[in-house]
């Protein structure tokens, strides 16, 4: 599509009170078109009762190149995991 076309991320809430879940994306020129396109693409089979669309460029993401620095789980540092610690006698319901 020509200029003005943007990608929007689509989120659906299944029932009131539940978290909105990311379901995919759609193309649209503005907010109104985005919500209609999202409705036509993602909600025709009772997927939910509420819909959000967010311009994809409004979402801040970790640059792919930095992912190692951001997400290194530190597997060598065993003390980061709860299982490293012994459960004292007498502690219930843990």
């Amino acid at each position: 599509m020509e200029s003005g076309d943007k990608v929007w991320e689509v989120f659906i809430q299944k029932k009131p009170g539940l978290a909105f879940k990311h379901v995919g994306s759609c193309h649209a020129y503005d907010k109104k078109m985005a919500i209609q396109n999202a409705r036509d693409l993602y909600t025709r089979r009772g997927e939910g009762r509420a819909l959000w669309v967010v311009p994809a460029d409004a979402i801040v993401a970790v640059p792919l190149d930095d992912s190692e620095a951001f997400f290194d789980p530190g597997d060598d540092k065993v003390y980061r995991h709860a299982t490293f610690y012994k459960t004292p006698d007498g502690v219930k319901y843990l």
Binding site: M1, H27, A28, D40, L41, R44
Partner: peptide, 11 residues
């Protein structure tokens, strides 16, 4: 004219 509208018309 574009994918989303194609689906809207089909719906």
């Amino acid at each position: 004219p574009f994918l989303e509208e194609d689906i809207a018309l089909s719906n």
